[in-house]
């Protein structure tokens, strides 16, 4: 698959071939085909399998939970990840409780497109993964241009717990990294099992800083790393995590334990976030190095480019931070 979107569509179609799988969401049917046209054509090709819902996120997520409780495998699409605040009750107070309380494997994936940098403003730009991480029996999976979304989607459906599948809206327009020209300068390794950590670095180079990130920022970070390496001769490596929750902190520790500088990067707000949790867990395992975390600042995400930049992390700032560290 050359592109993120192609991979995602392929994963969806593979899942939908199972009679127990249905995709439910707002405006997913033709002719609209979803807000990002991911499901375009699917309702025509597979009648009855891709279904428009009323604008009732709580209700149709609950519908998905019930389907899963009865042995079906629903894919629930939330149009903007921001709206996943509405579904918290069904995921946390229902689905996750049924897994342990009722000893049920629930096959349920909530597709939850996150991310900003598109001028969509405060309620259509957030990265809210952190609301769902760290909770028992909820998985948070983050594809990227290094982690094919279609592959992760198919595996997510087999986890047996409700999955928040945090796609990224800008990634819908991007190639998978292997198809990018700059990819040949990199060495990419994968560590771990079904939901691996991708390690991107430059062959034969000792990295000065290790970045730990995920999701939609992976693409611009890889470009930034390339620029730093080519223009400044600064080698940085990136660890791209595909399962935020549960996170394999032992694996991460084994990958960074000898490093001197670790920088976590997320699009969501920093305090009590993904980076903080990673740093805490590395420190608890005895790691002594310099830690920094970058993410959104304590502002709502404004619509103008300037206002958006006040809140969302900027690649130039990350570059400066690395160069001056």
């Amino acid at each position: 698959m050359n592109t993120y979107k192609e991979s995602l569509i392929d994963g969806l179609e593979r899942l939908l071939a199972d009679p127990k799988v249905f995709l439910l969401g707002e405006d997913v049917e033709d002719p609209y085909g979803g807000a990002y046209t991911i499901t375009k054509g699917m309702s025509t090709r597979m009648p009855g399998k891709v279904l428009n819902t009323p604008m009732s996120e709580q209700g149709f997520t609950g519908l998905g939970v019930g389907m899963a409780l009865a042995g079906y495998k629903p894919i629930v699409e939330i149009m903007f990840g921001d709206f996943s605040t509405l579904i918290m009750d069904q995921i946390l107070n229902h689905a996750s409780k049924f897994v342990e309380g009722f000893e049920k494997r629930l096959h349920l994936v909530v597709r939850d497109p996150m991310g900003g940098y598109r001028g969509y403003g405060a309620t259509h730009s957030q990265s809210l993964e952190k609301l769902y991480v760290g909770l028992p029996h909820i998985a948070v999976i983050t594809p990227s241009v290094l982690h094919a979304p279609g592959e992760l989607l198919v595996k997510s459906m087999e986890l047996g717990v409700p999955v928040i599948f945090a796609e990224n809206k800008l990634d819908y327009t991007r190639k998978m990294f292997a198809a990018e020209k700059i990819a040949e300068a990199f060495e990419i390794k994968y560590h771990g099992g079904d939901f691996p950590v991708a390690e991107a670095g430059f062959p034969g180079e000792e990295p000065e800083v290790t970045l730990i990130g995920y999701g939609g920022l992976v693409h611009p970070l890889l470009q930034m790393m390339y620029d730093l390496y080519m223009e400044e001769e600064v080698a940085v490596r990136l660890l791209d995590v595909s399962s935020l929750s549960p996170m394999d902190f032992d694996l991460l520790y084994s990958l960074v334990k000898d490093d001197a500088k670790v920088l976590t990067i997320e699009e969501g707000h920093v305090p009590f976030g993904i980076g903080d949790a990673i740093i805490s867990n590395l420190a608890q395992r005895g790691m002594r190095c310099q830690f920094r975390s970058v993410g959104a600042k304590q502002h709502i995400i404004g619509t103008s480019k300037e206002a958006e930049a006040l809140a969302l992390p900027q690649i130039d700032d990350i570059k400066e931070l690395i160069l001056n560290w």
Binding site: M67, L69, Y72, D89, N93, H94, G101
Partner: peptide, 30 residues
């Protein structure tokens, strides 16, 4: 508040099982 037996399920959030039951009905219809 949180019990089950075969296909019988209860939970402690007021009204929360209504959408869940509708989802079960979706499965039963299919």
């Amino acid at each position: 508040q949180h019990v089950y037996y075969k296909n019988y399920f209860t939970n402690g959030i007021t009204g929360g099982m209504a959408p869940v039951t509708v989802g079960i009905a979706f499965a039963l219809k299919h």
